[in-house]
Design a protein around this nucleic acid. Structure first.
Lengths: 251, 251
DNA sequence: GAGTGGTCTAGACCACGTA
DNA sequence: ACGTGGTCTAGACCACTCG
Protein backbone atom coordinates (compact mmCIF):
# COMPACT_ATOMS: atom_id res chain seq x y z
CA UNK A 1 0.00 0.00 0.00
CA UNK A 2 2.97 2.28 0.56
CA UNK A 3 3.47 2.81 -3.12
CA UNK A 4 5.39 6.04 -2.52
CA UNK A 5 8.95 6.24 -1.20
CA UNK A 6 9.22 7.65 2.31
CA UNK A 7 11.16 10.73 1.21
CA UNK A 8 8.38 11.64 -1.22
CA UNK A 9 5.73 11.20 1.45
CA UNK A 10 7.69 13.58 3.64
CA UNK A 11 8.00 16.12 0.83
CA UNK A 12 4.32 15.81 -0.04
CA UNK A 13 3.33 16.27 3.60
CA UNK A 14 5.05 19.61 3.94
CA UNK A 15 4.24 20.69 0.38
CA UNK A 16 0.53 20.44 1.08
CA UNK A 17 0.89 22.08 4.48
CA UNK A 18 2.47 25.04 2.76
CA UNK A 19 -0.03 25.10 -0.13
CA UNK A 20 -2.98 24.91 2.26
CA UNK A 21 -1.73 27.82 4.29
CA UNK A 22 -1.25 25.72 7.40
CA UNK A 23 2.39 26.77 7.17
CA UNK A 24 2.92 30.38 6.17
CA UNK A 25 5.86 32.32 4.80
CA UNK A 26 8.48 32.62 7.52
CA UNK A 27 7.20 29.68 9.60
CA UNK A 28 9.71 27.15 10.80
CA UNK A 29 9.57 23.44 10.04
CA UNK A 30 10.49 20.78 12.62
CA UNK A 31 14.16 19.80 12.65
CA UNK A 32 15.44 16.95 10.51
CA UNK A 33 15.85 14.85 13.63
CA UNK A 34 12.26 15.48 14.76
CA UNK A 35 10.81 14.64 11.36
CA UNK A 36 12.93 11.49 11.20
CA UNK A 37 11.44 10.36 14.52
CA UNK A 38 7.89 11.22 13.47
CA UNK A 39 8.12 9.27 10.25
CA UNK A 40 10.30 6.54 11.69
CA UNK A 41 13.07 6.92 9.12
CA UNK A 42 16.75 7.83 9.09
CA UNK A 43 17.82 11.42 9.00
CA UNK A 44 19.25 11.06 5.51
CA UNK A 45 15.81 10.10 4.20
CA UNK A 46 14.32 13.25 5.68
CA UNK A 47 17.08 15.28 4.03
CA UNK A 48 16.29 13.76 0.64
CA UNK A 49 12.65 14.72 1.05
CA UNK A 50 13.24 18.24 2.25
CA UNK A 51 15.81 18.79 -0.49
CA UNK A 52 12.96 18.39 -2.98
CA UNK A 53 11.15 21.30 -1.39
CA UNK A 54 14.33 23.35 -1.33
CA UNK A 55 14.87 22.88 -5.06
CA UNK A 56 11.20 23.69 -5.63
CA UNK A 57 11.88 26.97 -3.92
CA UNK A 58 9.31 26.36 -1.19
CA UNK A 59 11.62 26.32 1.82
CA UNK A 60 15.12 27.44 2.75
CA UNK A 61 17.62 26.03 5.25
CA UNK A 62 19.04 28.59 7.65
CA UNK A 63 21.76 26.94 9.60
CA UNK A 64 21.82 26.48 12.52
CA UNK A 65 18.22 27.51 12.98
CA UNK A 66 16.34 25.11 10.78
CA UNK A 67 14.12 25.10 7.72
CA UNK A 68 11.74 27.97 7.01
CA UNK A 69 8.94 28.57 4.53
CA UNK A 70 10.19 30.96 1.90
CA UNK A 71 9.01 34.52 1.26
CA UNK A 72 8.54 35.93 -2.21
CA UNK A 73 8.38 39.50 -3.39
CA UNK A 74 7.98 40.35 -7.04
CA UNK A 75 9.01 43.34 -9.05
CA UNK A 76 7.10 44.09 -12.24
CA UNK A 77 9.17 43.82 -15.41
CA UNK A 78 7.71 45.52 -18.50
CA UNK A 79 9.73 44.73 -21.61
CA UNK A 80 7.44 46.95 -23.73
CA UNK A 81 8.51 50.11 -21.96
CA UNK A 82 12.17 49.50 -22.49
CA UNK A 83 14.45 51.04 -25.06
CA UNK A 84 12.30 53.92 -26.17
CA UNK A 85 13.98 57.25 -26.80
CA UNK A 86 13.83 59.17 -23.56
CA UNK A 87 12.59 62.71 -23.20
CA UNK A 88 15.62 64.94 -23.04
CA UNK A 89 15.43 66.44 -19.59
CA UNK A 90 18.47 66.73 -17.37
CA UNK A 91 17.06 65.10 -14.27
CA UNK A 92 16.12 61.98 -16.15
CA UNK A 93 17.07 58.58 -14.89
CA UNK A 94 16.62 55.22 -16.48
CA UNK A 95 13.38 53.32 -16.32
CA UNK A 96 14.56 50.78 -13.82
CA UNK A 97 15.67 53.41 -11.32
CA UNK A 98 12.52 55.42 -11.93
CA UNK A 99 10.19 52.57 -11.18
CA UNK A 100 12.03 51.40 -8.10
CA UNK A 101 12.29 54.89 -6.65
CA UNK A 102 8.56 55.38 -7.26
CA UNK A 103 7.93 52.33 -5.10
CA UNK A 104 9.93 53.83 -2.27
CA UNK A 105 12.82 51.44 -2.68
CA UNK A 106 16.46 52.26 -3.21
CA UNK A 107 17.90 51.43 -6.63
CA UNK A 108 21.58 51.16 -7.41
CA UNK A 109 23.73 49.48 -9.98
CA UNK A 110 27.21 48.29 -10.71
CA UNK A 111 28.44 48.90 -14.25
CA UNK A 112 31.33 47.15 -15.94
CA UNK A 113 32.43 47.57 -19.54
CA UNK A 114 34.57 45.04 -21.31
CA UNK A 115 35.44 43.72 -24.74
CA UNK A 116 34.39 40.13 -25.17
CA UNK A 117 34.22 37.58 -27.93
CA UNK A 118 30.72 36.95 -29.16
CA UNK A 119 29.39 33.53 -28.25
CA UNK A 120 27.04 31.77 -30.64
CA UNK A 121 23.91 33.31 -29.13
CA UNK A 122 25.10 36.92 -29.39
CA UNK A 123 26.83 36.40 -32.72
CA UNK A 124 23.61 35.20 -34.28
CA UNK A 125 21.57 38.07 -32.90
CA UNK A 126 24.09 40.79 -33.81
CA UNK A 127 24.83 39.11 -37.16
CA UNK A 128 28.57 38.84 -36.66
CA UNK A 129 30.88 35.86 -36.83
CA UNK A 130 31.17 33.88 -33.58
CA UNK A 131 34.35 35.00 -31.84
CA UNK A 132 34.17 38.57 -33.14
CA UNK A 133 35.13 41.14 -30.51
CA UNK A 134 32.13 43.11 -29.28
CA UNK A 135 31.53 45.56 -26.47
CA UNK A 136 29.73 44.32 -23.36
CA UNK A 137 28.26 46.82 -20.94
CA UNK A 138 27.37 44.76 -17.92
CA UNK A 139 25.15 45.88 -15.13
CA UNK A 140 23.95 44.23 -11.98
CA UNK A 141 21.01 46.13 -10.57
CA UNK A 142 20.23 46.25 -6.90
CA UNK A 143 17.15 47.06 -4.87
CA UNK A 144 17.78 48.02 -1.27
CA UNK A 145 21.30 46.66 -1.71
CA UNK A 146 20.15 43.23 -2.90
CA UNK A 147 21.04 42.10 -6.41
CA UNK A 148 17.86 41.88 -8.44
CA UNK A 149 18.71 41.39 -12.08
CA UNK A 150 21.46 41.32 -14.64
CA UNK A 151 21.35 43.63 -17.65
CA UNK A 152 24.18 43.08 -20.12
CA UNK A 153 24.05 45.17 -23.29
CA UNK A 154 26.21 44.18 -26.25
CA UNK A 155 27.19 46.33 -29.22
CA UNK A 156 29.23 45.76 -32.36
CA UNK A 157 32.64 47.31 -31.66
CA UNK A 158 32.74 49.73 -34.59
CA UNK A 159 29.43 51.32 -33.63
CA UNK A 160 30.44 52.48 -30.17
CA UNK A 161 34.20 52.82 -30.32
CA UNK A 162 35.34 56.02 -28.53
CA UNK A 163 31.82 56.74 -27.29
CA UNK A 164 30.58 57.15 -23.72
CA UNK A 165 29.27 53.63 -23.90
CA UNK A 166 32.85 52.42 -23.44
CA UNK A 167 33.16 54.04 -20.02
CA UNK A 168 31.73 52.24 -17.03
CA UNK A 169 29.74 55.23 -15.82
CA UNK A 170 26.08 55.96 -15.77
CA UNK A 171 24.88 57.66 -18.98
CA UNK A 172 22.03 60.03 -18.14
CA UNK A 173 20.58 60.23 -21.65
CA UNK A 174 20.83 56.48 -22.10
CA UNK A 175 22.88 54.28 -24.41
CA UNK A 176 20.12 54.26 -27.01
CA UNK A 177 20.38 58.04 -27.36
CA UNK A 178 24.14 57.70 -27.82
CA UNK A 179 23.43 55.37 -30.72
CA UNK A 180 20.89 57.82 -32.14
CA UNK A 181 23.51 60.59 -32.03
CA UNK A 182 25.88 58.40 -33.99
CA UNK A 183 23.27 57.64 -36.63
CA UNK A 184 22.10 54.28 -35.36
CA UNK A 185 18.66 54.99 -33.96
CA UNK A 186 16.55 51.91 -33.34
CA UNK A 187 12.98 51.59 -34.47
CA UNK A 188 12.24 47.93 -33.89
CA UNK A 189 13.16 45.25 -31.38
CA UNK A 190 12.71 41.52 -31.06
CA UNK A 191 12.23 40.02 -27.62
CA UNK A 192 12.96 36.43 -26.76
CA UNK A 193 12.47 34.85 -23.37
CA UNK A 194 14.00 31.54 -22.32
CA UNK A 195 13.36 29.74 -19.08
CA UNK A 196 16.10 27.71 -17.46
CA UNK A 197 18.03 27.03 -14.30
CA UNK A 198 20.84 29.53 -13.65
CA UNK A 199 24.51 28.94 -14.36
CA UNK A 200 26.92 28.95 -11.41
CA UNK A 201 28.11 32.39 -12.53
CA UNK A 202 24.56 33.74 -12.43
CA UNK A 203 23.96 32.14 -9.04
CA UNK A 204 27.00 34.01 -7.78
CA UNK A 205 26.26 37.40 -9.33
CA UNK A 206 22.61 37.37 -8.29
CA UNK A 207 23.09 35.57 -4.97
CA UNK A 208 20.44 33.06 -5.98
CA UNK A 209 19.21 30.40 -3.62
CA UNK A 210 18.88 26.85 -4.83
CA UNK A 211 15.69 26.08 -6.71
CA UNK A 212 15.39 29.50 -8.30
CA UNK A 213 14.85 29.38 -12.06
CA UNK A 214 15.62 32.40 -14.23
CA UNK A 215 14.08 33.99 -17.28
CA UNK A 216 16.62 35.14 -19.83
CA UNK A 217 15.30 38.01 -21.91
CA UNK A 218 17.15 38.75 -25.14
CA UNK A 219 16.21 42.22 -26.40
CA UNK A 220 17.68 42.93 -29.83
CA UNK A 221 17.31 46.43 -31.33
CA UNK A 222 17.34 47.17 -35.06
CA UNK A 223 17.77 50.33 -37.10
CA UNK A 224 15.18 51.31 -39.71
CA UNK A 225 17.16 49.48 -42.39
CA UNK A 226 17.11 46.27 -40.35
CA UNK A 227 20.61 46.22 -38.93
CA UNK A 228 20.94 44.86 -35.37
CA UNK A 229 22.86 47.41 -33.29
CA UNK A 230 22.25 46.27 -29.74
CA UNK A 231 21.55 42.99 -27.99
CA UNK A 232 20.67 43.20 -24.34
CA UNK A 233 20.58 40.10 -22.19
CA UNK A 234 18.47 40.44 -19.06
CA UNK A 235 18.62 37.68 -16.49
CA UNK A 236 15.60 37.79 -14.22
CA UNK A 237 15.42 35.53 -11.16
CA UNK A 238 12.03 33.87 -11.14
CA UNK A 239 11.44 34.54 -7.48
CA UNK A 240 11.80 38.29 -7.89
CA UNK A 241 10.10 39.20 -11.15
CA UNK A 242 6.79 39.24 -12.92
CA UNK A 243 6.96 40.01 -16.64
CA UNK A 244 4.06 42.14 -17.85
CA UNK A 245 3.13 43.48 -21.25
CA UNK A 246 0.03 44.57 -23.07
CA UNK A 247 -1.59 44.05 -26.45
CA UNK A 248 -4.43 45.77 -28.22
CA UNK A 249 -5.90 45.28 -31.64
CA UNK A 250 -8.61 46.65 -33.88
CA UNK A 251 -11.42 44.27 -34.59
CA UNK B 1 43.25 23.83 -0.47
CA UNK B 2 40.23 21.59 -1.04
CA UNK B 3 37.86 24.36 -0.13
CA UNK B 4 35.06 22.75 -2.11
CA UNK B 5 33.07 19.69 -1.04
CA UNK B 6 33.73 16.60 -3.13
CA UNK B 7 30.20 16.42 -4.48
CA UNK B 8 30.52 19.97 -5.83
CA UNK B 9 33.83 19.19 -7.46
CA UNK B 10 32.19 16.24 -9.18
CA UNK B 11 29.27 18.40 -10.34
CA UNK B 12 31.63 21.14 -11.55
CA UNK B 13 33.74 18.64 -13.46
CA UNK B 14 30.87 17.37 -15.55
CA UNK B 15 29.19 20.78 -15.81
CA UNK B 16 32.26 22.23 -17.51
CA UNK B 17 32.69 19.17 -19.70
CA UNK B 18 29.16 19.71 -20.95
CA UNK B 19 29.55 23.48 -21.33
CA UNK B 20 32.82 23.10 -23.24
CA UNK B 21 31.29 20.68 -25.67
CA UNK B 22 33.54 17.83 -24.58
CA UNK B 23 30.31 16.04 -23.72
CA UNK B 24 27.49 16.55 -26.20
CA UNK B 25 23.75 16.07 -26.08
CA UNK B 26 23.03 12.36 -25.89
CA UNK B 27 26.47 11.34 -24.64
CA UNK B 28 26.65 8.99 -21.70
CA UNK B 29 28.43 9.74 -18.44
CA UNK B 30 30.41 7.10 -16.54
CA UNK B 31 28.40 5.08 -14.03
CA UNK B 32 28.07 6.21 -10.45
CA UNK B 33 30.36 3.40 -9.40
CA UNK B 34 33.05 4.40 -11.91
CA UNK B 35 32.97 8.05 -10.89
CA UNK B 36 33.14 7.06 -7.23
CA UNK B 37 36.30 5.10 -7.94
CA UNK B 38 37.84 7.89 -9.99
CA UNK B 39 37.28 10.51 -7.31
CA UNK B 40 37.92 8.15 -4.43
CA UNK B 41 34.59 8.79 -2.73
CA UNK B 42 31.51 6.80 -1.77
CA UNK B 43 28.76 6.26 -4.28
CA UNK B 44 26.34 8.41 -2.28
CA UNK B 45 28.66 11.37 -2.68
CA UNK B 46 28.67 10.93 -6.45
CA UNK B 47 24.87 10.78 -6.38
CA UNK B 48 24.71 14.07 -4.49
CA UNK B 49 26.90 15.71 -7.11
CA UNK B 50 25.10 14.34 -10.13
CA UNK B 51 21.74 15.23 -8.60
CA UNK B 52 22.81 18.86 -8.85
CA UNK B 53 23.22 18.49 -12.60
CA UNK B 54 19.90 16.68 -12.86
CA UNK B 55 18.06 19.52 -11.14
CA UNK B 56 19.91 21.98 -13.35
CA UNK B 57 18.44 20.14 -16.29
CA UNK B 58 21.84 19.27 -17.76
CA UNK B 59 21.64 15.48 -17.53
CA UNK B 60 19.00 12.79 -17.12
CA UNK B 61 19.18 9.36 -15.52
CA UNK B 62 17.89 6.57 -17.73
CA UNK B 63 17.77 3.45 -15.67
CA UNK B 64 19.27 0.96 -16.12
CA UNK B 65 21.50 2.54 -18.74
CA UNK B 66 23.12 5.41 -16.93
CA UNK B 67 23.28 9.19 -17.06
CA UNK B 68 23.04 11.05 -20.36
CA UNK B 69 23.55 14.66 -21.43
CA UNK B 70 20.14 16.11 -22.09
CA UNK B 71 18.69 17.16 -25.43
CA UNK B 72 16.64 20.28 -25.84
CA UNK B 73 14.22 21.20 -28.57
CA UNK B 74 12.34 24.45 -28.40
CA UNK B 75 9.06 25.48 -29.88
CA UNK B 76 8.53 29.17 -30.53
CA UNK B 77 5.77 30.73 -28.47
CA UNK B 78 4.44 34.08 -29.72
CA UNK B 79 2.02 35.65 -27.25
CA UNK B 80 1.47 38.60 -29.60
CA UNK B 81 -0.16 36.47 -32.25
CA UNK B 82 -2.64 34.92 -29.89
CA UNK B 83 -6.25 35.79 -29.43
CA UNK B 84 -6.78 37.85 -32.52
CA UNK B 85 -10.06 37.42 -34.36
CA UNK B 86 -9.50 34.74 -36.95
CA UNK B 87 -10.34 35.05 -40.58
CA UNK B 88 -13.59 33.17 -41.12
CA UNK B 89 -12.63 30.39 -43.44
CA UNK B 90 -13.85 26.85 -42.94
CA UNK B 91 -10.52 25.09 -43.07
CA UNK B 92 -9.11 27.23 -40.33
CA UNK B 93 -7.45 25.72 -37.34
CA UNK B 94 -6.06 27.36 -34.28
CA UNK B 95 -2.67 29.01 -34.23
CA UNK B 96 -0.98 26.32 -32.22
CA UNK B 97 -2.05 23.56 -34.61
CA UNK B 98 -1.21 25.71 -37.60
CA UNK B 99 2.33 26.39 -36.48
CA UNK B 100 3.08 22.83 -35.50
CA UNK B 101 1.68 21.40 -38.71
CA UNK B 102 3.75 23.90 -40.69
CA UNK B 103 6.84 22.49 -39.01
CA UNK B 104 5.92 19.00 -40.14
CA UNK B 105 4.99 17.84 -36.67
CA UNK B 106 1.75 16.32 -35.52
CA UNK B 107 -0.38 18.45 -33.19
CA UNK B 108 -3.19 17.11 -31.05
CA UNK B 109 -4.98 18.17 -27.92
CA UNK B 110 -7.15 16.92 -25.13
CA UNK B 111 -9.98 19.23 -24.10
CA UNK B 112 -11.85 19.12 -20.84
CA UNK B 113 -14.52 21.56 -19.70
CA UNK B 114 -15.51 21.97 -16.08
CA UNK B 115 -16.99 24.41 -13.65
CA UNK B 116 -14.54 25.44 -10.99
CA UNK B 117 -14.33 27.89 -8.17
CA UNK B 118 -12.09 30.82 -8.92
CA UNK B 119 -8.88 30.85 -6.90
CA UNK B 120 -7.41 34.18 -5.84
CA UNK B 121 -5.32 34.56 -8.99
CA UNK B 122 -8.21 34.04 -11.42
CA UNK B 123 -10.70 35.94 -9.28
CA UNK B 124 -8.52 39.01 -9.34
CA UNK B 125 -7.97 38.88 -13.07
CA UNK B 126 -11.63 38.23 -13.96
CA UNK B 127 -12.78 40.68 -11.29
CA UNK B 128 -15.06 38.26 -9.47
CA UNK B 129 -15.19 37.23 -5.84
CA UNK B 130 -12.81 34.38 -4.92
CA UNK B 131 -14.84 31.17 -4.87
CA UNK B 132 -17.23 32.29 -7.61
CA UNK B 133 -18.08 29.51 -10.05
CA UNK B 134 -16.44 30.04 -13.42
CA UNK B 135 -16.02 27.94 -16.54
CA UNK B 136 -12.66 26.32 -17.16
CA UNK B 137 -11.83 25.01 -20.60
CA UNK B 138 -8.69 22.99 -20.09
CA UNK B 139 -6.42 21.81 -22.82
CA UNK B 140 -3.22 19.84 -22.86
CA UNK B 141 -1.55 20.20 -26.22
CA UNK B 142 0.65 17.54 -27.69
CA UNK B 143 3.32 17.47 -30.36
CA UNK B 144 4.01 14.06 -31.84
CA UNK B 145 2.09 12.58 -28.94
CA UNK B 146 4.19 14.28 -26.28
CA UNK B 147 2.54 16.78 -23.95
CA UNK B 148 3.95 20.20 -24.68
CA UNK B 149 1.95 22.81 -22.87
CA UNK B 150 -1.15 23.48 -20.83
CA UNK B 151 -3.70 26.03 -22.01
CA UNK B 152 -6.55 26.60 -19.56
CA UNK B 153 -9.06 29.29 -20.53
CA UNK B 154 -11.43 30.64 -17.89
CA UNK B 155 -14.66 32.56 -18.44
CA UNK B 156 -17.25 34.12 -16.17
CA UNK B 157 -20.16 31.67 -16.10
CA UNK B 158 -22.90 34.03 -17.29
CA UNK B 159 -20.95 34.96 -20.42
CA UNK B 160 -20.68 31.49 -21.87
CA UNK B 161 -23.61 29.57 -20.38
CA UNK B 162 -25.28 27.37 -23.03
CA UNK B 163 -22.61 28.20 -25.61
CA UNK B 164 -20.30 25.86 -27.50
CA UNK B 165 -17.59 26.79 -25.07
CA UNK B 166 -19.23 24.53 -22.54
CA UNK B 167 -18.73 21.44 -24.68
CA UNK B 168 -15.35 19.73 -24.64
CA UNK B 169 -15.01 19.71 -28.42
CA UNK B 170 -12.78 21.62 -30.72
CA UNK B 171 -14.34 24.92 -31.85
CA UNK B 172 -13.22 25.71 -35.40
CA UNK B 173 -13.92 29.44 -35.27
CA UNK B 174 -12.30 29.77 -31.86
CA UNK B 175 -13.64 30.66 -28.44
CA UNK B 176 -12.90 34.33 -29.00
CA UNK B 177 -15.28 34.41 -31.97
CA UNK B 178 -17.96 32.78 -29.81
CA UNK B 179 -17.55 35.65 -27.38
CA UNK B 180 -17.74 38.17 -30.25
CA UNK B 181 -21.02 36.60 -31.39
CA UNK B 182 -22.42 37.03 -27.91
CA UNK B 183 -21.40 40.66 -27.77
CA UNK B 184 -18.19 40.32 -25.82
CA UNK B 185 -15.49 40.96 -28.38
CA UNK B 186 -12.06 41.64 -26.93
CA UNK B 187 -9.90 44.52 -28.02
CA UNK B 188 -7.15 44.51 -25.44
CA UNK B 189 -5.18 41.97 -23.43
CA UNK B 190 -2.73 42.02 -20.59
CA UNK B 191 0.02 39.43 -20.47
CA UNK B 192 1.84 38.39 -17.34
CA UNK B 193 4.60 35.83 -17.16
CA UNK B 194 5.80 34.20 -13.95
CA UNK B 195 8.73 31.85 -13.63
CA UNK B 196 8.68 29.06 -11.09
CA UNK B 197 9.17 25.37 -10.51
CA UNK B 198 6.16 23.26 -11.47
CA UNK B 199 3.58 21.88 -9.07
CA UNK B 200 3.26 18.09 -8.75
CA UNK B 201 0.05 18.32 -10.79
CA UNK B 202 1.84 20.13 -13.60
CA UNK B 203 4.68 17.64 -13.49
CA UNK B 204 2.14 14.89 -13.98
CA UNK B 205 0.10 16.53 -16.75
CA UNK B 206 3.16 17.62 -18.72
CA UNK B 207 5.33 14.61 -17.89
CA UNK B 208 8.09 16.95 -16.75
CA UNK B 209 11.49 15.69 -15.76
CA UNK B 210 13.14 16.97 -12.60
CA UNK B 211 14.89 20.30 -12.91
CA UNK B 212 12.49 21.72 -15.48
CA UNK B 213 11.16 25.17 -14.58
CA UNK B 214 7.97 26.50 -16.16
CA UNK B 215 6.76 29.86 -17.36
CA UNK B 216 3.18 30.61 -16.45
CA UNK B 217 1.60 32.99 -18.91
CA UNK B 218 -1.61 34.72 -17.79
CA UNK B 219 -3.39 36.20 -20.81
CA UNK B 220 -6.41 38.28 -19.80
CA UNK B 221 -8.70 39.67 -22.52
CA UNK B 222 -10.88 42.78 -22.11
CA UNK B 223 -13.83 44.19 -24.02
CA UNK B 224 -13.76 47.75 -25.33
CA UNK B 225 -15.40 48.99 -22.15
CA UNK B 226 -12.70 47.39 -20.03
CA UNK B 227 -14.47 44.31 -18.75
CA UNK B 228 -12.32 41.15 -18.42
CA UNK B 229 -14.08 38.31 -20.25
CA UNK B 230 -11.37 35.67 -20.53
CA UNK B 231 -8.31 34.65 -18.55
CA UNK B 232 -6.11 32.04 -20.13
CA UNK B 233 -3.38 30.34 -18.14
CA UNK B 234 -0.62 28.85 -20.27
CA UNK B 235 1.95 26.65 -18.58
CA UNK B 236 5.08 26.38 -20.70
CA UNK B 237 7.85 23.95 -19.73
CA UNK B 238 11.13 25.82 -19.92
CA UNK B 239 12.89 23.05 -21.77
CA UNK B 240 10.40 23.11 -24.63
CA UNK B 241 9.60 26.76 -25.30
CA UNK B 242 11.07 30.02 -26.40
CA UNK B 243 8.81 33.03 -25.95
CA UNK B 244 9.14 35.57 -28.75
CA UNK B 245 7.50 38.91 -29.39
CA UNK B 246 8.24 42.08 -31.24
CA UNK B 247 8.12 45.81 -30.64
CA UNK B 248 8.38 48.78 -32.95
CA UNK B 249 8.09 52.49 -32.27
CA UNK B 250 8.20 55.78 -34.03
CA UNK B 251 11.07 58.03 -33.11
C1' DG C 1 28.39 23.71 25.20
C1' DA C 2 24.42 22.42 22.71
C1' DG C 3 22.01 21.95 18.66
C1' DT C 4 21.39 22.95 13.87
C1' DG C 5 22.11 21.62 9.06
C1' DG C 6 26.24 20.06 5.72
C1' DT C 7 29.05 16.43 4.30
C1' DC C 8 30.45 11.71 3.97
C1' DT C 9 30.94 6.54 4.50
C1' DA C 10 30.12 1.54 3.90
C1' DG C 11 27.21 -1.09 3.65
C1' DA C 12 22.14 -3.06 2.12
C1' DC C 13 18.08 -4.29 -0.73
C1' DC C 14 14.97 -3.09 -4.56
C1' DA C 15 12.95 -2.19 -9.47
C1' DC C 16 13.86 -2.34 -13.88
C1' DG C 17 15.41 -3.23 -18.73
C1' DT C 18 18.48 -5.75 -21.47
C1' DA C 19 20.95 -9.71 -22.90
C1' DA D 1 21.41 -13.20 -14.61
C1' DC D 2 23.45 -8.94 -14.57
C1' DG D 3 24.23 -4.12 -13.98
C1' DT D 4 22.04 0.18 -13.73
C1' DG D 5 20.15 3.80 -10.85
C1' DG D 6 16.62 4.36 -6.62
C1' DT D 7 16.00 4.06 -1.87
C1' DC D 8 17.45 3.58 2.82
C1' DT D 9 20.18 2.88 7.23
C1' DA D 10 23.19 3.90 11.18
C1' DG D 11 26.53 5.73 12.11
C1' DA D 12 30.45 9.77 11.90
C1' DC D 13 32.63 14.42 11.95
C1' DC D 14 32.33 19.29 10.72
C1' DA D 15 31.09 24.53 10.78
C1' DC D 16 28.30 27.55 12.44
C1' DT D 17 25.51 30.41 15.67
C1' DC D 18 23.23 30.92 19.74
C1' DG D 19 22.76 31.31 24.71
Amino acid sequence: MESQPAYQRIAATYRTRIASGELRAGDQLPTEHTIADQFGVARQTVRTGLSLLVTEGLIVARRPHGYFVRQREYMIYRPQEKSRPRPVTPEMVDRFSQQIAAEGRVPSQRIEVSMVQAGPDLAERLRVEPGTTIVARRRVRFINGEPTNINDSHFPLELVKDSEIMSPAYIPRGTDQVLVDRGYGQDRAIDEILIRMPTPDEIHRLELGPGTPVAVHYDTGYTADGRPVRCTVNVLPGDRHRIVFERSWLS
